[in-house]
């Protein structure tokens, strides 16, 4: 009986964490949608193939 409760605990934890992660993504998505204009969010363009063409200079060459 003791053991049974342990695994059930694990299952409840899994449900709980799933719900939290889902909620976090949802809230962050809604806040981001509000904080920025739709034009900014949709501003990425295809075809910027080499680093030189990438729009934000601080990221050239990737992370350091």
């Amino acid at each position: 009986m003791e053991n049974l409760n342990n695994f059930q605990l694990l299952e409840y934890a899994a449900w709980g964490i799933s719900a939290l992660l889902g909620l976090w993504m949802l809230i962050d998505m809604i806040r981001t949608n509000r904080a920025y204009s739709e034009d900014t969010l949709l501003s990425s363009k295809e075809g910027e193939i080499e680093d030189v063409l990438v729009i934000d200079p601080p990221h050239q060459g990737g992370h350091r």
């Binding site: 920025y36 034009d39 900014t40 969010l41 501003s43 990425s44 363009k45 910027e48 680093d51 990438v54 729009i55 934000d56 200079p57 601080p58 990221h59 050239q60 990737g62 992370h63």
Partner: peptide, 18 residues
Amino acid sequence: MSQYTAVHGEKVSLLRVL
């Protein structure tokens, strides 16, 4: 890796880091 808030000239693109 640290995250940057990156909005330059009102444009955002996917991050080239890989």
